[in-house]
C-alpha cells in the first residue's frame, strides 16, 4: 500500500468513538416518549454489543407451539390418572387438569403467531458449546460419587477454560488446579461439607 503521504484513515472498530446514529443523543431519540421495559432490554442488548444467533424460522415456532400443546395434553391425561374431581369436590387431579387445559390453550394460541414471532433463536455451531458445557456437568455429577469431586471438577473447569473459552494452556491448567484447591480448602477443610472427595 503506497498511498500518498498524509492519507490517513479514520480509526474504526470497537473502543473508538460510537458510529453515527448511536451517540447518546440519538439513543434518546430512538427511545420514544413512552418506552416499555422491552425497549429498555433491547437497547441494553444492543449497547452491550453481544452478538446472538439469528431468530429461528416459522417452522421452529410451530414446533415450539406444538410442544407446548403436547405438554398441556399430557398434563390433562396425567390428571385423569389421579382423581380429577369436580368444581364442588376438588381432588388431587383438579388443579393439574386446569393447568393442562390452560397450557393447551396457550400452545394453540402460539400457533397462529408462528410466522411473526422472532424471539426464538436458531441453533448454530455455537450451540455445540452449550452441549459440551452440559456434557461436562453431566460427567461431573455421574462420576462424583465414585471418584470424589476433585478430579471431575478440575476436568470441568479445564474444559470450560481451554476448549469453551479458548484460554491458553497455562492459564487453563493453572486456574483449574487453583479453583479445585480453593474449593477443597473452603468446603472440605473449613466447612466440613460431606461432599464425596478423594483426598
Amino acid at each position: 500500500m503506497s498511498s500518498a503521504p498524509g492519507g490517513a484513515q479514520r480509526p474504526t472498530g470497537p473502543g473508538g468513538p460510537p458510529a453515527a446514529g448511536t451517540g447518546p443523543a440519538d439513543l434518546v431519540e430512538r427511545l420514544h416518549d413512552d418506552p416499555t421495559v422491552a425497549d429498555a432490554d433491547d437497547l441494553a442488548a444492543e449497547l452491550s454489543a453481544e452478538e446472538r444467533p439469528e431468530p429461528a424460522g416459522p417452522v421452529a415456532n410451530v414446533v415450539i407451539a406444538l410442544v407446548v400443546v403436547c405438554l398441556g395434553v399430557a398434563t390433562v391425561v396425567g390428571s385423569f390418572g389421579q382423581n380429577v374431581g369436580s368444581a364442588s369436590a376438588p381432588a388431587g387431579g383438579t388443579w393439574p387438569f386446569l393447568i393442562g387445559v390452560v397450557l393447551t390453550g396457550l400452545g394453540l394460541a402460539l400457533l397462529p403467531l408462528a410466522r411473526r414471532t422472532a424471539d426464538a433463536e436458531k441453533f448454530t455451531r455455537a450451540s455445540l458449546l452449550v452441549v459440551a458445557g452440559v456434557a461436562t456437568m453431566v460427567g461431573f455429577v455421574a462420576t462424583i460419587g465414585v471418584i470424589g469431586f476433585e478430579i471431575p471438577a478440575t476436568a470441568l473447569v479445564f474444559v470450560w477454560l481451554r476448549f469453551l473459552g479458548r484460554e491458553s494452556w497455562r492459564l487453563s491448567i493453572a486456574l483449574s488446579l487453583a479453583v479445585v484447591v480453593a474449593f477443597y480448602l473452603i468446603f472440605v477443610v473449613a466447612l466440613s461439607v460431606p461432599i464425596p472427595h478423594l483426598f
Binding site: 458445557g133 455429577v141 462424583i144 471438577a153 473447569v157 470450560w160 477454560l161 469453551l164 464425596p196
Partner: peptide, 25 residues
Amino acid sequence: TVLAPITVMITLIGVYTVRNSVFDI
C-alpha cells in the same frame, strides 16, 4: 470465559450443600 466455570462450580457444589444430595446436583 474465566468467570463462567468458576460460577458453574460454585453452583454445582453449592447446591449439594443444601441437602447433601447428589440428586440435587
